[in-house]
Design a protein around this nucleic acid. Structure first.
Lengths: 332, 332
DNA sequence: CACTGTCTTGCAAACGCATGCAGCGAGGTA
DNA sequence: TACCTCGCTGCATGCGTTTGCAAGACAGTG
């Protein structure tokens, strides 16, 4: 063992009286080693505290066993949950997650992805982050599979894992109509997001099917304060809506805060509120928010599955949008 | 450029008509290169899309520029915030964060840390995770600096970044006493955590100073459902407390939910509630929770600073506990 | 005993980069 | 011209692995 504390396969080999190759093979599942040497090597390794250097292995094999994750927001409680699930699922497959925070500017993303590629990641997950076709090309050129999470993009052959946002929007409309609401508003997220566009498209479709149109519309950009401003604009008036579909739960919390605490409105008596995502806190009594549940576990599973098979070299085609479900609670 | 899309320094060297060393030096700040060759190399690199391979560099230099982060909870909104800040601060220093989820069992942690070390991380942050002295030794042996975050441990020479939890507990007691509350309860977090012990110790001290003792005590283990159970046990009785200090905001939300939604109690009229952390949602009107603010940014800065200097080889001694601040809101 | 086939093992060559060392040329001084 | 200095540059080596190849060991077969 060198003074720095680094134990190499050579140290183990010497102690076990075998070659470096033997040591390597013991730690490579499926390699040809006799049980006798394997045992000797394992003993020596344990005694020295040897563990293979993942980085060195990565150089030879080209597989770093690390997956890059780019995520824009972490304040929206949906994403910590996703990170948790994703990390656990990937750990089970022997991968680990290198996290990169990115703001929303395209140039920033560009930069961040470049940095990620420097780490020779085996795959890339972009959560709620836009992918330019330029960037997509770069990743493809590096041979790094990319999966978009909760956002899709109109580029041929790009993998995206999304819920069936369109249907989600529809069932929200249906639900509000069933409740007899007629002055129905929408507070949108960031309009550049496919997620937003699909939810709204489905929602509009649902309204239209009942012969209704949108009574009011504001944009919240998926940000809490923008959403609160949007709510103020929409509701601080006499002719306010009697229901509002907010494009995600995180914004819906802000909207409810404005409605109840600032404007003194009652939910759902004065205004019905529906969100999207079903983050854990949506179920807490303080909000008790009716929402559309995205199946986070299924989304993560689909992401991991797509990633793994792409890494193994097979092309996989885009998974179907995942089913969503209306969760009726106290706000409607 | 090889067929796989990997561009190496040799490719760039050839195109620029220089040696590999020259290319390497151009990408090594402070190395000796003439402006003329630097320009040639940069042009060639741009044309080929070359970027140095971090992993290969890591092998030579022994610095991987990656920091391991072990985190136990992500549902407590405090930690996503920390992850965000930490990741951003480290990115600024040229590092990136490899995330590992760990449950609380010691053997699991052990395992997880071993895996991290396999990646030759330059440093390790353990957030809300126990560090056995065994593990500490292993890390020291590998020469990997470790910083405990929001948890300290009684091991000589271990770095820990914590708030002044003791004072935090004291000012909570003081505050409740100032409000004239006399039947004061405490819902504790996980008792193995120094954070819990310090907060409670300070709290008790504050009560004692006013000649008071604890009226009731339950344990919530920093878990939401445990905290709700604890609240039920503590408050579903005639002789209930008129104030409760909950060891963190996350549990306090659950406690308030039980108090208001299940037991029909009014906060703060019937029961005053105080939390700890000041997570973003504590300020939302739905809870409007009085709490003790931990300066997350300062904690992260201290963590990064300690990490960086330790990586550079200097020993640094444990930073002082960071100042906390009572944030008075509607629950008291 | 010779021959063949099956396992196991060591050798040596990568992987992509950084860096000490020595050599090169240009410029300055005597 | 001879000599020295100094800024640049290339060569070669090494970081800790994996892996194709070939050789050794051994058992089975005729």
């Amino acid at each position: 063992m060198s003074p720095t504390g680094k134990v190499t396969s050579l140290d183990v080999a010497k102690r076990a009286g075998v070659s470096r190759s033997a040591v390597s093979r013991v730690f490579t599942p499926g390699a040809s080693v006799s049980e006798r040497t394997a045992q000797k090597v394992r003993d020596a390794a344990d005694a020295l505290g040897y563990r293979p250097n993942v980085l060195a292995r990565a150089m030879l094999t080209g597989k770093s066993k690390i997956i890059g994750l780019v995520v824009a927001y972490l304040d929206n409680h949906f994403y910590p949950k996703i990170l948790e699930l994703l990390s656990e699922a990937l750990e089970r497959e022997g991968y680990h997650v290198l996290v990169f925070m990115a703001s929303h500017t395209a140039s920033d993303i560009e930069d961040v992805v470049s940095q990620i590629l420097d780490y020779q990641v085996d795959g890339l997950v972009l959560a709620s982050v836009a992918l330019s076709s330029d960037l997509a090309d770069r990743c493809r050129a590096s041979g790094v599979p990319v999966v978009l999470f909760n956002r899709k993009v109109e580029i041929e052959g790009e993998l995206a894992v999304v819920s069936d946002n369109r249907t989600g929007g529809q069932i929200v409309a249906q639900h509000l109509i069933d409740l007899g609401r007629t002055r129905i508003g929408h507070i949108a997220g960031w309009e550049g997001a496919s997620t937003q566009r699909d939810r709204e498209a489905g929602f509009m479709e649902g309204l239209r099917a009942a012969g209704l149109g949108l009574y009011a519309r504001e944009v919240g950009d998926f940000r809490l304060n923008r959403a609160k401003d949007a709510a103020r604009r929409m509701f601080d008036t006499d002719a306010r809506p009697d229901a509002v579909f907010v494009a995600n739960d995180y914004m819906a919390f802000g909207v409810m805060d404005v409605l109840r605490a600032e404007l003194g409105l009652r939910v759902p008596q004065d205004v019905a509120v529906v969100g999207f995502d079903d983050v854990p806190s949506a179920g807490w009594p303080a909000y008790d928010l009716t929402t559309v549940r995205q199946n986070a576990a299924a989304m993560v599973d689909a992401t991991v599955a797509a990633l793994i098979t792409e890494i193994s070299g097979e092309r996989v085609d885009a998974p179907d949008p995942l089913a969503v479900e209306l969760v009726k609670r106290g706000t409607t």
